[in-house]
Design a protein around this nucleic acid. Structure first.
Lengths: 210, 210
DNA sequence: ACTCAGTTCAAACGGCCGTTTGAATTGGAA
DNA sequence: TTCCAATTCAAACGGCCGTTTGAACTGAGT
């Protein structure tokens, strides 16, 4: 009797990831999710103790996948030159623009949260946030003088992520005037190059001034 | 009989600006607004033809004030050196961190929209967006080679705004771990300095490479 | 004093939300 | 086969939402 249960759980999570990524937590109703997952309405409460529980579950898996993944993997980044590491990081951040794959959907979910954090998310981040910024902070530190204060490095990391996230958040804007830009691989590559160059210049300049 | 009507309109708009800035469009219910404004529930529909109409009204006034205001005033910016103009722009963008004054509330409203644009907002921006980016684009252009393409300049402008907006959007984050930063005038000044330096470096570097 | 358009008001409406309920179904264990 | 716990299901619940309604009030114009 446990087979169908796991199948149901899995369908729900899959549908939930899609819808949370697309519409955010509040925007995706449990009715949307169960319809997309082709399961009964009460299933979410039975398996996850409510919408919050489902979201927490989804956040957990998303977070695990993301931290395991290249863009946030310290080992991969440290094996590259700092410029190459920066480019790799920027590209990982921008990839959700293409939103094809699973990972892009996860990043997109977090993009929603960075705007209006849910209670669930805040609670989740209170215990899990530490590692999220670490990769970015470490990366930024490689451009800054050794003695740079923690606060400045943190601000630098956020600064770096802000440059990428605004493009991800405003993705829909690009198709319209005055941009009229098709968001495809070439554009993302181009944008990666542009932002990387801008960021490197900024970090070097700030570093020299300090 | 028109005196109390205008008073009611004004109270509603004032309360609406506060609540839309604080909670976003969906987050602020008409019941919240009428309670804060101390008016009857039906007043919004009577005076503004519904919540959407009220929002449109608020967006209009906010947009007017913002475009008239220093941070977006091309004349003031062009009278400064490009570095000073950039610093002024960054400071204007970061000022909502302190959110004291009316202007900060307006910028905060737009920050909500940049994350999950409302239908009302999209319709509004479809007709009014042109001028919003102009100041930023002009500013960025002063750092880029004369022949720079429109698309690159636009991306540069967005890039610049992204660096600021992430701090505004994540304002609440700073009070918590691992930041534990008090957001006061000194911090905003410090942050302005940091971002300005980073941005100048980035723009010069990108410019030199192009 | 009367009228009447402008405005306020309390109450209700219909709709969507997340959740709960209790009965029906399922398939392995006794 | 019988039992039983796990799971599914249709239906309903209570709550908040934006909006509508129709009556009550207000004060300037006649």
């Amino acid at each position: 009797m446990t087979r169908p249960a796991e199948y149901t759980r899995h369908s729900i999570i899959k549908a939930a990831v899609d819808l949370f990524a697309e519409k955010g937590f509040e925007g995706a109703s449990v009715r949307d999710i169960v319809t997309k997952a082709c399961v009964n309405q009460a299933a979410i409460n039975y398996h996850f103790k409510g919408k919050d529980g489902l979201y927490l579950e989804v956040l957990k898996t998303a977070f695990e996948k993301l931290t395991d993944h290249a863009g946030f993997d310290p080992d991969k980044l440290t094996s590259l030159s700092r410029e190459e590491a920066l480019r790799s990081f920027v590209y990982q951040q921008l990839r959700p623009l293409l939103f094809r794959d699973e990972m892009s959907r996860y990043i997109r979910m977090f993009a929603w949260e960075s705007a209006h954090p849910t209670k669930v998310f805040r609670k989740f981040m209170a215990t899990n946030s530490a590692s999220y910024l670490t990769a970015a902070v470490d990366l930024v530190r490689r451009f800054l003088p050794p003695g740079t204060q923690k606060r400045a490095a943190l601000c630098g990391a956020i600064w770096l992520m802000g440059q990428c996230s605004i493009f991800v958040r405003n993705r829909e804007l690009f198709a319209q005037e005055p941009f009229s830009i098709a968001i495809d691989e070439p554009f993302v590559d181009e944008l990666t190059e542009l932002i990387t160059r801008l960021a490197i210049g900024g970090l070097r300049h700030a570093s020299a001034a300090a």
